[in-house]
C-alpha cells in the first residue's frame, strides 16, 4: 500500500476514534443509546467479516452466538456478579460454545452450503429463544436488566453516556485484539485457506482445525457483542436476532469491503444509522426502501469486482469457476 494511503487511513481512523469518544457530549441521550447499540452490532459485523472476508466462509448465522451471548450474560452472568467483565466473559464463552457445537455442521461445507446451514442454525436459535419462555421470557423478552459496573470497585453504569463509553472501550479493545491476532501467522493461514484450501492441505496444514478455530473465535466475539447489547439497551428480545439482522450484518460487511475488519465496523454504522433514520422518516415504507437499498447496493457497489475471489469453494456460478475438466475420471476413494 502506498505510504500516502496508509497515512490517510491512519488519519481517518484517528478522527473517527476521537469523534466516537466525543460523540456523547454532542448529541442527546436517545442518540447515545442508539450509538451504543450500533457499537454492539458493529462488533458482530466484525465477527462476520472475520468469517466471511478473512477466512472466506460466508455466514448468515452470526446472530446465533450473538443471541447466546446476550441471554447468557443476562441469565448466567446476572447471577454470578454485576461486573461487566464477568458478563463479557460469560457471553463470549456462550458464543464460543454455541459456535463450537455447530462446527461439525459447517467445518466441511463451503460456499452457498455454508450460507444455508448458518442461516438455518441462526433461525433455529432465534426460534428456540422465542419458545423457551421460562429462561428467555419468550417473545416478550427480558426487561429491567440491572446495570453493571465495568470492573470491580467502579461505579455502576447508570447513564446512557457511561454505557456508551463502556461499549466503546470494549469494542476498541476486542477489535484491537482481533487485528493483532490477524497480523500473526493466524491471519496468513486464514487468508491462504481462502485462496486455496487444497494447496494449504498439501503443505501439511490441518485446514479443518483452522476453520473450526476461526468459527469458535468469531462465535466468542459475537457472544461478547451480545453482552454489550444487553448493557446498551438493558432489554433483550428475540427480535434483536432475527433474519433481518443477519442480512443487515452481511450488507454491512459487503459495504465495508468484505476483507477489512475496520470496514465492517464502519459498514455496520452506516447500515444501522440508515435503517434507524429510514424507520423514523418513513414509518410504513421502511422495509420497502431498505429492500431497495439492498438491491441498489448489489448493483452499485464499486471496486469489489477487481478483487480476487474472496469465498472458499464456489464463488461464481459453477460454469465460470470450474477448472478445466481433468483429463481423467475421479478414482474411487479419492480424497477431496
Amino acid at each position: 500500500m502506498p505510504r500516502a494511503l496508509r497515512a490517510l487511513r491512519r488519519g481517518i481512523t484517528a478522527v473517527v476514534l476521537v469523534g466516537l469518544v466525543l460523540a456523547p457530549s454532542a448529541v442527546d441521550d436517545y442518540t447515545v443509546a442508539l450509538l451504543a447499540r450500533t457499537l454492539a452490532l458493529g462488533l458482530v459485523a466484525v465477527s462476520v467479516a472475520l468469517l466471511t472476508g478473512v477466512a472466506g466462509l460466508p455466514t448468515l448465522g452470526q446472530t446465533a452466538p450473538y443471541a447466546a451471548g446476550a441471554y447468557a450474560s443476562v441469565v448466567v452472568g446476572g447471577q454470578l456478579s454485576d461486573v461487566g467483565l464477568v458478563h463479557l466473559g460469560v457471553a463470549a464463552a456462550a458464543g464460543a460454545a454455541l459456535a463450537a457445537a455447530t462446527v461439525p455442521l459447517v467445518v466441511s461445507a463451503r460456499g452457498v452450503v455454508v450460507l444455508m446451514i448458518t442461516l438455518a442454525v441462526g433461525e433455529l436459535v432465534v426460534t428456540i429463544v422465542g419458545r423457551w419462555r421460562s429462561v428467555t421470557g419468550g417473545t416478550d423478552g427480558l426487561a429491567g436488566i440491572p446495570p453493571v459496573r465495568p470492573l470491580w470497585g467502579l461505579p455502576v453504569l447508570a447513564t446512557d453516556r457511561a454505557r456508551y463509553l463502556y461499549a466503546l472501550v470494549v469494542v476498541a479493545v476486542l477489535v484491537g485484539v482481533v487485528l493483532l491476532v490477524l497480523r500473526t501467522r493466524v491471519g496468513l493461514l486464514l487468508r491462504a485457506g481462502r485462496d486455496d484450501e487444497a494447496r494449504l492441505r498439501a503443505s501439511g496444514h490441518r485446514v479443518a482445525l483452522h476453520v473450526a478455530g476461526v468459527h469458535v473465535a468469531a462465535g466468542a466475539v459475537a457472544g461478547a457483542a451480545g453482552s454489550l447489547l444487553v448493557v446498551a439497551q438493558q432489554y433483550v428480545s428475540p427480535a434483536d436476532f432475527g433474519f433481518d439482522t443477519s442480512a443487515l450484518l452481511l450488507l454491512a460487511v459487503v459495504i465495508g469491503g468484505t476483507w477489512s475488519v475496520g470496514g465492517a465496523l464502519i459498514g455496520a454504522a452506516i447500515v444501522i444509522a440508515s435503517r434507524d433514520w429510514l424507520f423514523g422518516v418513513l414509518p410504513g415504507q421502511a422495509p420497502l426502501v431498505l429492500g431497495l437499498a439492498f438491491v441498489a447496493t448489489v448493483y452499485l457497489l464499486p471496486g469489489a469486482g477487481h478483487r480476487p475471489p474472496a469465498v472458499r469453494g464456489r464463488l461464481l456460478p459453477p460454469a465460470l469457476t470450474r477448472r478445466p475438466v481433468p483429463d481423467r475420471p475421479s478414482p474411487t476413494g479419492v480424497r477431496a
Binding site: 442480512a247 431498505l290 438491491v295 464463488l315
Partner: peptide
C-alpha cells in the same frame, strides 16, 4: 443475471432485498 458480480454474497443480499421489497408490497 443483471447484477454485475454474481457471487454468493451478492446473491444473498439481492434476494434478501427482493424479499423485503416483496414482503412490504404484499403487506401494503
Amino acid at each position: 443475471t443483471r447484477a454485475a458480480r454474481r457471487n454468493h454474497l451478492t446473491q444473498a443480499l439481492l434476494t434478501f432485498g427482493l424479499a423485503l421489497v416483496g414482503g412490504s408490497l404484499l403487506v401494503s
